[in-house]
Design a protein around this nucleic acid. Sequence first.
DNA 1: CTCACATATAGAAAAATTTCTATGTATAAG
DNA 2: CTTATACATAGAAATTTTTCTATATGTGAG
Lengths: 110, 110
Amino acid sequence: MSLDFLEGTLLLKALADETRVQIIHILSCGELCACDILSYFDLKQPTLSHHLGLLEAANLVEVRKEGRWSYYKLNSEGFTHVQAFLTTLASPSEVCLCKQIKPSCCNETK
Amino acid sequence: MSLDFLEGTLLLKALADETRVQIIHILSCGELCACDILSYFDLKQPTLSHHLGLLEAANLVEVRKEGRWSYYKLNSEGFTHVQAFLTTLASPSEVCLCKQIKPSCCNETK
DNA sequence: CTCACATATAGAAAAATTTCTATGTATAAG
DNA sequence: CTTATACATAGAAATTTTTCTATATGTGAG
């Protein structure tokens, strides 16, 4: 499995915000419409819309439109990917970028 | 297991930066001194120092000082915690914040 | 068709983060 | 003691992100 840094940082940036973390949490039990999510936060509607858009772009949530309502729920794809990314990122590998570094000032103690 | 939102977002914010993700990657095979890490990046020394400080504060890396050198390596504690945080965050729970929301405009379809 | 409501988009203001230069501290060499 | 090197800290500049107001789109009710 190779590292997709672009997707990985997109996912991590989407997760790196208190509001979005809370959105994920209140969606953890199931689907909610945008207006119900909004009622939980002290934010304007376009701000929430922006956060939901970022989460959707990262495949952390998915939307289902019904009439004039938008129902949001978690998308397991993003969560699976970010967990896999972190695991791979922190694991040693033969093709690691560290192989490009030539020890200079200090003796390595590997 | 309960959710520590403060620690969780600290960890996720530390991970949400291309440079820091790359630092973690080049440390994945073992210990490196700060000057060797620096040689890999097109950054000034104080900037790298700042990134390493954030990673250390989040328990994603740890330092060992030896003479005038600082050797950095990954700290598994942060990685374990962030993976656990994400799993818990996205899992349904009896005490979820979603229970505080009273369905308003739209009929829930749970 | 007209109106009201739910949500999205555009663009500006505010806030947070990243990066830099300048400088300080600590350690080792001479 | 003086100097050089590795790294940290302080504070300013640049960039990115978050939030807002204003407005547009799309759907259903009447």
